[in-house]
Write a protein that binds this DNA or RNA. Structure first.
Lengths: 190, 190, 190, 190
DNA sequence: ATCTAACCGAGACGGTACGTCGTGTCTTAGC
DNA sequence: GCTAAGACACGACGTACCGTCTCGGTTAGAT
């Protein structure tokens, strides 16, 4: 009843960490396209089997590595007004993502591999989306959003612009862009 | 004066067509991730070298095949008002793209291969963007868009939402979605 | 003390045998010039990498296959007189080699590839040469060879004629030829 | 009736020479194994077709180039005695061939390609053999060769040793070697 | 104190696709 | 009809990774 106590030698935490670290290093050096399981195993000093035992694909390794790397917690601003909250949220997000080409690699993998796509959405995309939805919901409760407004569409607008710029790299993803987008969204809620 | 008279045996138009056709067939059968140069060559009944001679990567083959397939011409509606034009443009686009997972594969390739990314943007993405810009510009000339509005950001909003839904597949890309997005953009221009 | 305990999955003896067998079959069917690594791998049901892992070139595969096939042991006759020993040795050799065009293919490869040439000489040519040298040395100890005779040159004469006929195929390599060559060598030692 | 007057543009002697020269240069630079039709055509500044039109294989190109290069005429010594003639012939031959690895490449090709083998024998090997046969015949007429001696076997001995050393490169092919071989042959004729 | 089970590294295995090379044939325009 | 140029179908090359497998060896709880 103490839960499932597993038999045999337990998983090596040291190896797990080594693999995630190796994945991030390989990622930083050659980009996502150059990432291979062979390479990660070589760098981590482990057998390939050990990777396959715990992750279904290399994208899952990278996803876990990224989620572990730090910015797991998504801060939800609560400054009392939609414009202020939006600006804060967007600026924080743009600042974080603006210099992270790895996200692009993960998205590419998600587009090619439906199984990973599901994990990527659940563990990453939809959580960020949910955080922004909280901001919107609070604003709606404060009466800042016109009734009948499709909040989900607004979320799509925000993350759509964010990803579109991230993927095409044709326009900056800086704090000023965050402000402008926030202003546009506010205008659209009236 | 007949221009550049080329030496040697001229390029075989029949083979070129066979390759593009084979690429589209392979694409339809197995999806972009399963596409291989070997497979295209096998199906087209040509040598691999012939493919490598004319296209730098398989994504370029696919891109040319798609551009050739039909919807090369982008219709720019001109019905006299921004709401009407936008709704028409978006509905047409959503109708076209909604059933085209190949675009997703091309985007994935663009994310992994910077050289192809450039071609993809030039020959596909930016042309569509330019078409929408025409719609916006006409509206601005009619005074339908508030001065100081960042038109480029509006374009990002439209195509951002479009691509975001295409990539995540979490919300429909139908004509109703087009209407809603058009309404939102119109609201944002006031 | 048990010697070198190897890490990792051990080499598959079954695969090794399958490769050597496949090589001999391909050889028998199409001759040496038509031999390919692809073909051997296909017939052996193994990956090409497995062949490249263990042999530096296809000639080395063939060499090992031949050495394994049977006539590894070189019989050195010892009948008490040079004429008798020579006749026995040559007849045995001519009988063996006369129907083995594969040897010609190996020689061709040795002429084109210096690395293989070294292996071919060490593992094949020089061992046969050494066997004949034993016959000559015994005769010299019995006083059958005139002092001052260059034994190495005699060895060259024997194997020279043998290979020359093997390569040019202008004269038979049968037992009668063995007798005649033996008689000539005996005459040259007086 | 004036014989076969060929129609059209006549064969370009300049191109023929350029091809033979290019073949020899490629041969000197990279050895026989690295020789390719493509390479010869590139260096000669001609189309591949032109080569294929006039020679059945690259080995035939090389053979013609070599035959053209100079030492076409085989000098047959006639000094009045077998020992003297043999020594002269062998020394000349060893001097010529000792530094000619191209011969080895041609032999390799002959071993792999039966069609070329025929040409190589007819135009090269057997002519040299015939020259040596003249020497032997003259000696026989002078009574220097014991009746019943198999002259063809003697020829095999001479050219066998020559080629065997050329192919294996285990012993020198110098003038001293020529003397020793001549002495051995003379001994064998008694 | 064993026994058993799951872990670990190492690395060989059968595959598949890669991108390149050389072959011999063909199809142009030009001489 | 020959030439240079060069595209073509073909097929082998040697390499890189894939995901699986099979070793010897390790590390725990259960017996």
């Amino acid at each position: 009843m103490t839960g499932e106590r597993r038999l045999g030698r337990p998983r090596s935490e040291a190896t797990r960490t080594a693999i995630l670290t190796a994945a991030l290093e390989e990622l930083d050096e050659g980009g996502y396209a150059a990432l291979t399981i062979d390479g990660i195993a070589r760098r981590a000093g482990c057998g390939k089997q050990t990777i396959y035992r715990w992750w279904p694909s290399k994208a899952d390794v990278v996803l876990e590595a990224l989620l572990e790397r730090a910015e797991t917690t998504i801060e939800i601003p609560d400054e009392g007004s939609l414009p202020a909250d939006l600006a804060a949220f967007l600026q924080a997000t743009f600042r974080q993502w603006g210099q992270r080409p790895t996200l692009v690699g993960l998205m590419a993998q998600a587009l090619l591999d439906p199984v990973f796509a599901t994990a990527f959405k659940e563990k990453f995309l939809f959580r960020r989306r949910a955080a922004l939805r909280v901001v919107m919901t609070r604003a709606a409760e404060r009466g800042e959003i016109a009734p009948g407004t499709d909040v989900e569409l607004l979320l799509d607008v925000v993350y759509g612009v964010l990803w579109y710029r991230l993927l095409l790299d044709h326009a900056p993803l800086d704090e000023r862009a965050g402000e402008q987008l926030a202003a546009l969204v506010v205008r659209a809620t009236r």
